[in-house]
Amino acid sequence: MTLLSQHTAPEQTRTVATAGPSAPPVLAVRDVRISDRVTEREIVRGVSFELTPGKAVGIVGESGSGKTLTCRAALGILPPHFEVTGGSVEIDGTDIATLTPPQWAALRGSTISAVFQDPASYLNPSIRVGAQIAEVVRVKKGLKRREARHRAVELLRAVRLSDPELVYGQYTYELSGGMLQRVLIAAAIAADPRALIADEATTALDVTVQAEILDLLAELRERSGLALVVVSHDLAVVAHLCDEVLVMRQGEVVEHGPTRAVLYDPQHEYTRLLIAEHDQYGLEKFLTPKEAS
């Protein structure tokens, strides 16, 4: 993949994945609690995890369990009437509660970045999608217009859009949901963030495209130490990508540990249920006996 080798500005020497567990976390979530100000209910009750460079943490659980809210809290973009009522989030050693808007602007995109579901609402419908990616590159990486364009096309190619030059010049309404999702992923990694939050980022994608995106993310982890938070309802995606898993239910983390331990030797009843459902309504239903033989 040419994307990763080129255009990595020389001044950006990074602690790569090889940096041991002693490397300081890019993102540290400590006992975060989130409440709904209107109903005064606590929606998220104490979530903690640390993301060192190159590490991937998966969050699984039913919808409404607080996965997305936790991610949004880490990015400082909670929906209107929600607020963090306890714990802290640190990005690169800085407590986000102390960040000013300009500081946030500097962090987002280049240090921490995110892809959510519903890609259309994160892109401007009246600007060509390629220009939106190029803008990220120009602002965050200080590239000239032409270089930015070149880089944007490369990014579009990296997310396996079949005709990146064409897609560059298209508007959101001309692209399918899966294509938009990929455009959004390209935009999210455009400024070489150190941490990426992927909230159901590959759910809407075709399975072969998903495989390419998963490969791309794995490659970014390996080469430039990208740290990942993966929220997915697909346990297999989490199992494939993550070192560590959090299982959330009704705002609480019911199980947290290394992926292997959690998914192969689940302790909590709810985790067992999730795995059983996956076994019954997933490819495992047929694959398991074959693998065993």
Binding site: A236, A239, E284
Partner: peptide, 23 residues
């Protein structure tokens, strides 16, 4: 799922990660 014959089916099934196997 277990013994896809056509190349495309193999690609599809092969692309999907499972809990126990990598794609």
């Amino acid at each position: 799922i277990n013994e896809p014959r056509h190349a495309y089916t193999r690609l599809l099934v092969g692309s999907a990660p499972t809990l126990r196997t990598a794609p």
